[in-house]
Write a protein that binds this DNA or RNA. Sequence first.
DNA 1: GTTCCGCATGAATCGATAG
DNA 2: ACTATCGATTCATGCGGAA
Lengths: 291, 291
Amino acid sequence: MENNIIEITTDIIQGDSSEVLKSFESDSIDLIITSPPYADQRSFTYGGIPPEEYVDWFLPITKELLRVLKPTGTFILNIKEKVVNGERNTYVIELILEMRKQGWLWTEEFIWHKKNCYPGKWPNRFRDSWERLLQFNKCKQFHMYQDAVMVPMGNWSKTRLKNLSDKDKTRDDSKVGSGFGKNISNWVDRTMVYPTNVLHLATECNNKNHSAAFPEELPEWFIKLFTKEFDVVLDPFMGSGTTLIVSNRFRRNSIGIDIIPEYCEMAKKQLNKVEAYLYEKREKYGKVKSK
Amino acid sequence: MENNIIEITTDIIQGDSSEVLKSFESDSIDLIITSPPYADQRSFTYGGIPPEEYVDWFLPITKELLRVLKPTGTFILNIKEKVVNGERNTYVIELILEMRKQGWLWTEEFIWHKKNCYPGKWPNRFRDSWERLLQFNKCKQFHMYQDAVMVPMGNWSKTRLKNLSDKDKTRDDSKVGSGFGKNISNWVDRTMVYPTNVLHLATECNNKNHSAAFPEELPEWFIKLFTKEFDVVLDPFMGSGTTLIVSNRFRRNSIGIDIIPEYCEMAKKQLNKVEAYLYEKREKYGKVKSK
DNA sequence: GTTCCGCATGAATCGATAG
DNA sequence: ACTATCGATTCATGCGGAA
């Protein structure tokens, strides 16, 4: 058979996830990754849910997510409890317990260490520089592609990660052995190492309007770790669409849902840019291989 | 009044914390910092508690801890849930919820990022390189001395911390009051910054036998942050006595409890070494000022 | 089939030493 | 003072075998 282009589909659905998801087929999603609106007492702009209602608000959605996820799939939930009345609120840990009652397995908790976190100073509290990345699964036997997220070891990682475009990454990795001679030959044996469950990423999100945006590296890491090409990624709180853009870039199908029409528009615009860019690339570099 | 030596007391009590603590005076402790035996299904060597019994086992102790803590005091709990049957067990988050019912405030959760974590490779899991440091308080108005844990900014921190042996540290700190003050105050403006709630420490403890040891930097950080000189520090699961040794070094009174006689002996030996050393120092550098 | 325990497997960073 | 080695350190999991 000849090589042909397999289209990567990227769907944006405007609506309430708890309703929209009901029309989804069961066992159809490979990875759910999302950063839901955090509980917030004050700003009710973007679905700001009061902390005490947060669990009840979220559970109907996680119930549908459990249904639509493939048995081998994974659900990554980026969340962090707010300080309410001088205390860390408990809605996140209550949510974990309730989700387990629904049938979710709480497989792991990754830490996202935000290297440049919000500035500020308080008399009885330091700056909060980490968030939870809760991993939930349907079954113990889920897909995990660990090799896809190996990182350069030691101090190289820092200097290297600074100035790389997307393409430099792969090319760099394959060419490391040749160019620099003896210095590098020491490293060649074991340049790449497995990461741990602590992620060090700076929080640089392009879309400052969205209240719950994460940097592209975050969905990228989990998309590489838990999906392969042509798998389906779902973000039930799409926001500005970072998850979809990254999915598209790495040739994963994706679906984004958001209740706010403006975000859907914004995500569409972003995607059009990306797709135009990708189309150019295809023309330039030839057609994409089918799987 | 003349300068005179105020003795720093360091008490070691062999026994079960849930019983021993009952004889303690209420509202008498400034800081509780401890790393209790983690739940473990398998090894019952050091009070290995099965996960499903962990909360019930711990709650009577936290009840007493709440009583003996000063209203302005803090309780730091170093803990991490094990993987049980492919899932992160929930005993830690259940413990948080139950402790709040006792009256504790869950003020903050620090992350201890263990830079050199346990080896291993598993098909569906990366190495676990972080632990929780849960901060509990009795009242919202607790003592916090943020300036005491400011860190040199940028790369200096690394290079400085590298070259510090234990002796250098003590010498540093004992001299801070006198000669070096001015120099430091110059730097404070631009080189010292407040830390965040993520601690980066390597796990190297001198006492290899103890199954529940943390590195000295950990209690050091919290002792500086939450106590001043001559305050009282309590470790209800003393183990090899790291908390007491550090308390002593920084001129805090301390009390350690452990159920295992061998650990009490070990801690006493360690302390004797330290005290002999300190005595030498005093002779050399003159008497210690009273408060 | 269950559940239990023992044991082999397992990776990267830090610190000190030497060049 | 910087670099490159070596050696030491680490509160784990999953698997298999036994009860």
